[in-house]
Design a protein around this nucleic acid. Structure first.
Lengths: 353, 353
DNA sequence: TTGTACGCGTTATCAC
DNA sequence: GTGATAACGCGTACAA
C-alpha cells in the first residue's frame, strides 16, 4: 500500500491548527484503518459502484468503528450536486401557511433533497438573499414571493431551476404552481348569488400580493358579470386585525345593507366574522355571510367553520418539487405551469341556499 | 503573471464534460479577467484583509462584470465553518408553532447563519436524519424534539453545539431553552381556584412529549397540593380532534359537575371549547372554564379568546441562537439552560373572579 | 501589499 | 475489482 497525500493521520494533523471542532474523520482515515485505498472507501458510498463484498464489509467495519460520515461539502464540490434546495417564503406564508413548508419538506425529503430556508420580511431584501442562496450552490429554488424579471433572467442564465409557488411572473414563461384563484372566487360568488345574496363587500389583501390581486379581481369581475357593480373594496393586508378593520369600515358604511363579505384570505375572514359578531351583534350567517380563501386549519375548526376554498397544498407542493427535480435532471426542459383547483369547504359562515 | 493550475479558462474547460449547469465563474476566472492573482480575489471577500483600494476596485469591477459569487461549499471546506445550522422540528411544532421556525430564522439570519430544515414524523427517523445533518457540517443544531442520551454523547464527542428547544434531557447537562411549564400551570391553577372552581379535568398531550408531561404533572401536582386529588386525565395527542374527544369523554363522565378543563396545549383547548359549546350546549365560561397553554395566534383571536399561557417564543428563539453561536465561537463553554416564564393571557374562556 | 503553493475531503478517470 | 492521481473552488501560510 502506497498512500499518496496524507502520509499519516497524526503527522499530517499534529502540526496544523484547526479553527474548530478538532480533526475530522476522513475517508483517508478510514482507508488507513481498514488497510485499503481511499478510493475504495469512496466507492463504498457510491450506490451501484463495483466493489466486492469482502471489500465492502471491511470498509464498513472501519466506517462504523471510526464513526465516519462523508463530507457533503467536499462531495458536492466535485459532483456539482448539493442535494440542497432553497425555499424562499414571505413572512406571512411562513407564519400562516406552515403547511406549505411542511409539505415541501416532506416531498423534497422523499427525493433526497434538503431545504435551505429563507424568509423575507422586506421585499427589497430578496435580492441579497438570493445571492446567498446561490453561494450554497443549491440544486434549485422554490419561491413563494414575487421576483423581478431581471432576477428570473439571472436564474435562466445560470440554468438554475426556479419554480414559483402560488405566484408567477406576468407575460413570461416560468415554472409555476398555483391554485386557480379566479375559479375559486367564481365558485364562491356563484354560491352566494344562488342563495339570494344581493349586496356585497370585499376585503382585499396587500397590493403587492399577486394572489390577493387575482382573488379580489376574480370576485369583483364575476360579480360584475352578474350585474353587481361598484362593489365596495376595503384594502387589508392579510392580517387578522385588517379583517377587523375591514368589517368595521364596511359595516359602518353600509349598515345592515350588506348580505355578504368576501375576504381575500381566511385570516381576515375570521377577523371579520369575530368583529361583526362582537361589535355589531350580527348573526352569521343569519344577518350576513362571510367567506374566505385558503382553507387554513383554524378556519376549518368547528368554532370558525368558515366557508372557504381549500387550496390543495399537498398536491401543490408535490408538483413544485416534481418540477424542480425534473429540471435538475434535465436542465433544458421547457418551463411548465401546473394549476390546481381549490375545493370549497361548505362551512357555516355563509348562508348557501 | 504566472498562474498555477488552471492555465486558461477555455482550455481547462473545453474538453471536460460538466454534469450540470455549465461552467461556473470561479475566483480564477475573475483573477484572469482582472489581471491579478487568485488569492487577491479571495482576499477581497475577506473582511478586514489587507488589500489596496486600487486592487479592490479592479477586482470588484471584474466581479460584477462576470457575476462572480464565492462558492460556499469550497469556502467552508477550508474554513470549517458552513454558516449553516440544522433545525429539527416535530411535525406538530412545524404545523402548529410556525413562529418557532420564523423567529429562529430571523435570529440566525442576523448572525449570518442559515437554516437547514428537517422535520421528523416518526420518532425513529431522527437518527438517520441527524447523520444527514452532520454530513453537511453544520455549525450547530437546534432540536425541538427528544433525543436519545447516546446521540447527545455523539454530539459531545464531535464537539458540535446542540441546544434543545422547549425540551431537554433528564439528569444530564445539556444546552436547553424552555418555558417554565410547571410555573405556568401553577399560575393557571391558582387563578382558577381563586375564582372558586372546585372540580377539574385535564386533557394531556402525547406520552412522548416532555412538555406535555411537565404541563400535565404541573397542573395535577399543584391541584393535589391544594387538596384536589384524583383529577381525571384524558390523554390526547395535541390535535384539535383529541381536544374534542377529551371534551366528550370528560363531559359525559362527569356531566355538569366539572368546573374547569385544563388542556396541555391551545389546539386541544380550542377543540374542547368548540365541542362543549356545540355538542353539550355549555356556556363558556358561564358553565365551565377552559384553559390552554402556548399562546398560539388563533387562540388569542377574539373568536377564541382563550385563557392561556403565552410562551415568549421570540425571546426563546433568540436565546437558543445565542447559546449556539456562543458555542460556535467558544467550543468548550459549559452547557447552559435558560428558562423563560410564560405570560398569562387573560381571555374569556375562563371565569376568573 | 501581492503572488506562489498547498491543502480542505471528496469523486472521477484512468491504468492495472 | 482496485489503487494512484487529478480535479472541484477556495483560504491562507509564506516568500517576495
Amino acid at each position: 500500500m502506497n498512500q499518496t497525500r496524507r502520509p499519516s493521520l497524526e503527522l499530517s494533523r499534529g502540526n496544523k491548527v484547526f479553527p474548530q471542532k478538532g480533526p475530522r474523520v476522513t475517508s483517508y482515515d478510514v482507508a488507513e484503518h481498514a488497510g485499503v485505498s481511499q478510493s475504495a472507501v469512496s466507492r463504498c458510498f457510491k450506490p451501484g459502484a463495483s466493489v466486492s463484498k469482502k471489500m465492502r464489509d471491511r470498509v464498513m467495519k472501519a466506517v462504523t468503528e471510526m464513526g465516519y460520515q462523508p463530507n457533503a461539502m467536499a462531495r458536492s464540490l466535485i459532483t456539482r450536486r448539493t442535494n440542497l434546495v432553497g425555499v424562499i417564503l414571505s413572512e406571512f406564508t411562513s407564519l400562516h401557511h406552515p403547511e406549505v413548508l411542511f409539505e415541501l419538506n416532506q416531498s423534497f425529503s422523499n427525493r433526497g433533497e434538503h431545504i435551505l430556508l429563507f424568509t423575507v420580511h422586506r421585499e427589497r431584501d430578496i435580492d441579497e438573499m438570493i445571492e446567498l442562496v446561490f453561494q450554497y450552490q443549491v440544486d434549485g429554488v422554490v419561491i413563494a414571493t414575487t421576483l423581478s424579471p431581471e432576477r428570473v433572467d439571472w436564474f435562466e442564465e445560470r440554468n438554475l431551476p426556479l419554480v414559483f409557488f402560488n405566484s408567477t411572473i406576468r407575460n413570461r414563461s416560468v415554472n409555476a404552481v398555483f391554485c386557480d384563484q379566479d375559479a375559486g372566487e367564481r365558485e364562491l360568488v356563484n354560491a352566494l348569488i344562488n342563495a339570494g345574496h344581493k349586496s356585497f363587500g370585499i376585503i382585499s389583501g396587500p397590493e403587492d400580493s399577486l394572489v390577493s390581486i387575482q382573488r379580489t379581481a376574480g370576485a369583483r369581475d364575476h360579480l360584475g358579470e352578474l350585474g353587481f357593480d361598484n362593489v365596495p373594496v376595503f384594502q387589508g393586508d392579510y392580517s387578522y386585525e385588517s379583517g377587523q378593520r375591514g368589517a368595521r369600515e364596511l359595516a359602518n358604511r353600509f349598515k345592515a345593507k350588506l348580505d355578504a363579505i368576501i375576504c381575500a384570505n381566511d385570516v381576515m375572514a375570521i377577523g371579520c366574522m369575530d368583529t361583526l359578531r362582537k361589535e355589531f351583534s350580527l348573526k352569521i350567517p343569519g344577518d350576513i355571510s362571510v367567506v374566505g380563501f385558503d382553507g387554513i386549519a383554524p378556519a376549518i375548526w368547528a368554532g370558525c367553520d368558515l366557508t372557504t376554498i381549500r387550496q390543495p397544498m399537498k398536491q401543490m407542493s408535490e408538483a413544485a418539487v416534481d418540477i424542480i427535480m425534473e429540471r435538475v435532471n434535465h436542465p433544458d426542459k421547457a418551463p411548465e405551469t401546473r394549476v390546481f383547483t381549490g375545493v370549497m369547504h361548505n362551512g357555516s359562515s355563509a348562508r348557501l341556499s
